[in-house]
Design a protein around this nucleic acid. Structure first.
Length: 624
RNA sequence: CGGGGUGUAGCUCAGCUUGGCUAGAGCGCCUGGUUUGGGACCAGGAGGCCGUAGGUUCGAAUCCUAUCACCCCGACCA
């Protein structure tokens, strides 16, 4: 490709709305342009990188025995209603009505479609296992798109789905994909970490996440100090805090002073209460009221204060569904982990509406507490750390009042039919797991493998006949990779003040031949010759043939981050040589013109070999 | 969705508090000349319904109202 003919609109200053390095550089290097919030056009250089990633993924997936297909982006909502995921996805699922009034969704993923396809085509165990995948655009109407391609509304995803007759077979394919993913990320030149993950809305059990550790990542990975265990924050378990470690006052137990109600007018927040009572968040007990399962949007709208009053009792009965109210207790300095809570509950839950809370606690939001709450809710779930508290401050279930000297176990029950003590909060600094200190790091999730089990096959009748003629639902696995995120995280990892430093495997070009003096025929001819030689040897080369000053060409080459630069200028050509410089190094090296192409090819090969990175720390003894 | 902020030239922004504008700067772009190994210099030039719609006023980029778009923060707040 000739630079003079290519659309590479580099800019000196980054547009004001770019925050993080990769986003800024992708705009500055002319890889993409924003068209609206969370939607981007990929320009020639950006698309080239994406295509290179796609090629690597496709190659490895095919080698692993998966077959590529293509599913539609527009899917009928009926499929989603069958699995109930139109509710789970909520607003993130973009829907529209077509001219006939049929409701469609813009695919955020494709479990429904692929399972319904498989349901139609799979009849016998003899057709199993099967692994099919696609690389296509997905759409998620993100609550808040940000960080450019890291959280965009439209993005490229590789999604693979496998079907199996038994657990052993699923397990085997799961690890096959796991190993395939390792190869993919290695070939992309990324340092990655594998962590245990919750399977989230996908359902099922068994999941690992492939994460690129870097500060701009939105995910938090948690690992033990000896790196023996790593998980994401949604999953990471914490050891219970031993009671006697909490406070010397623990021994006071029932001898603690009696609970005392205090007037705390308009003091709702933890911080405000702490300031008012001169206490600390860790000495407070937060009481949150959840509704499980979450109310539908219609039901939420229909809750008015009047209706709440008349609902009577803690249970709101929807159409054939029992809605439970659950009080969840965590320490003031801790955060509830929705995934852990979901597992304990066995169902998803959402914070209750203010009207419900008011009805249950008899107080404005901000003054709920566990004392006397047991009869008013269906369940109470208490975090280990709260159970271990000697004494604490809570809301009084009375507007503008709190209670101090509340002793868990004395002033509210720690056991009973509807009381559960469990690990339901996020790990924080200072926590341990298996007695080992937990450490934290930000990361970008670039891939995830799941065992889905029969969640989708049961709902969509994806069955097969086994060798005894009995019908069974297929066991499924699913495996996703965010293509745009790979490109963005490569830039997060590889950059300096001058611009991008690509891994050679996903760079838009492997080599840039910089022709410095367009008015010097020897220079032009030499550059042209080397460029042609490289093309002949299948090197992905860009010839900078623009009639511009040297400085601009160097700056642009650095900004767009081409790994190898061959510089052809008047001075060196006169003495029969050219220079080769790596983007990642400061110094260039001179070589005779005749050796230029061979030497360049040698360097490109070397860079490719160096891509194989060791897996850094903590992927644990998870495997096998 | 709640809170905060910003919309002025392709990009980065000034001007708005205290209306007087025939709207500015730097970068980028076009022309000519001098330069030419790390984003050159000089001269000339093109480019804006000041996000949009109303309103106040002799007069609005500036004040008021509405609306749209974009950016940042936000589970709780017990």
């Amino acid at each position: 490709m000739r630079y003079s003919r290519m659309l590479i609109p580099t800019i000196k200053e980054a547009p004001a709305d770019a925050e993080i390095t990769s986003h800024k550089l992708m705009l500055r290097a002319g890889l993409m342009r924003k068209i609206a919030s969370g939607t981007y056009t990929y320009l020639p250089l950006g698309w080239r990188s994406l295509l290179k990633v796609i090629t690597i993924i496709r190659d490895e997936m095919n080698k692993a025995g998966a077959q590529e297909i293509l599913m539609p982006s527009v899917q009928p909502i009926e499929l989603w209603q069958k699995t109930g995921r139109n509710i789970d996805y909520g607003e993130t699922l973009a829907t529209f009505k077509d001219r006939h009034g049929r409701e469609n969704v813009l695919a955020p993923t494709a479990e429904e479609v692929v399972t319904s396809i498989a349901a139609g085509e799979i009849n016998s165990y003899k057709q199993l296992p099967l692994n099919i995948y696609q690389i296509s655009f997905k759409f998620r109407d993100e609550f808040r798109p940000r960080f450019g391609p890291l959280r965009s509304r439209e993005f490229l995803m590789k999604d693979a789905y496998s079907f199996h007759a038994d657990e052993t077979c699923l397990d085997k394919e799961y690890w096959n994909m796991y190993e395939t993913y390792k190869r993919i990320f290695e070939r992309c030149g990324l340092d990655y970490v594998i962590v245990e993950a919750e399977s989230g809305e996908m359902g099922g059990s068994g999941s690992h996440q492939f994460t690129i550790p870097c500060d701009s990542g939105e995910d938090i990975i948690v690992y033990t100090e000896d790196s023996a265990y790593a998980a994401n924050i949604e999953k990471a378990p914490v050891d219970p805090i031993p009671k006697n470690m909490v406070s010397p006052q623990a021994c006071l137990g029932v001898n603690s002073p009696a609970p005392q109600e205090i007037h705390t007018p308009n003091v709702g927040s933890i911080d405000a209460v702490c300031a008012f009572l001169k206490t600390q968040p860790k000495d407070m007990i937060k009481t949150l009221i959840y509704t499980s399962p979450p109310l539908t949007a219609e039901l939420k709208k229909s809750i008015s204060r009047e209706q709440a009053k008349h609902t009577g009792g803690a249970v709101i009965v929807g159409e054939g569904v029992d809605y439970q109210h659950v009080a969840v207790l965590v320490r003031g300095d801790h955060e509830i982990n929705p995934e852990k809570l979901r597992i304990v509950l066995g169902d998803s839950a959402e914070l209750a509406e203010p009207e419900e809370i008011q009805f249950i606690t008899n107080a404005k939001v901000g003054f709920a507490g566990p004392v006397g709450l047991a009869d008013k809710v269906d369940r109470i779930i208490i975090d280990h750390a709260v159970a271990a508290m000697a004494i604490g401050v809570t809301g009084a279930n009375k507007t503008d009042y709190h209670i101090k000297n509340v002793v868990p176990g004395r002033d509210f029950p720690l056991e009973g039919d509807n009381v559960t003590i469990a690990d339901i909060r996020n790990a924080v600094e200072g926590d341990t797991y298996n007695g080992k200190k937990l450490l934290f790091k930000h990361g970008i999730e670039v891939g995830q493998v799941f065992k889905l089990g029969t969640k989708y096959s049961k709902k969509l009748d994806c069955n097969f006949l086994d060798d005894s003629g009995k019908e069974n639902p297929c066991l499924m696995g699913c495996y996703g990779i965010g293509v745009n995120r790979i490109v963005a995280s490569a830039i997060e990892l590889g950059n300096d003040d001058n611009g991008i430093i690509w891994p050679i495997s996903i760079a838009p070009f492997e080599v840039i031949v910089t022709s410095l003096n367009q008015d010097d025929k020897d220079v032009v001819d030499t550059a042209e010759k080397i460029y042609q030689q490289l093309l002949d040897k299948n090197i992905d080369a860009l010839l900078d043939d623009r009639d511009l000053r040297a400085g601009i060409k160097f700056k642009d080459a650095d900004l767009i981050g081409i790994p190898v630069r061959v510089t052809v200028g008047s001075k060196s050509v006169k003495e029969g040589s050219i220079e080769i410089k790596l983007r990642s190094e400061q110094q260039s090296q001179k070589f005779p013109i005749n050796d230029a192409a061979d030497k360049t090819i040698e360097i490109v090969d070397l860079l490719k070999k160096q891509l194989i990175h060791p897996v850094i720390p903590a992927q644990a003894g998870i495997q096998g």
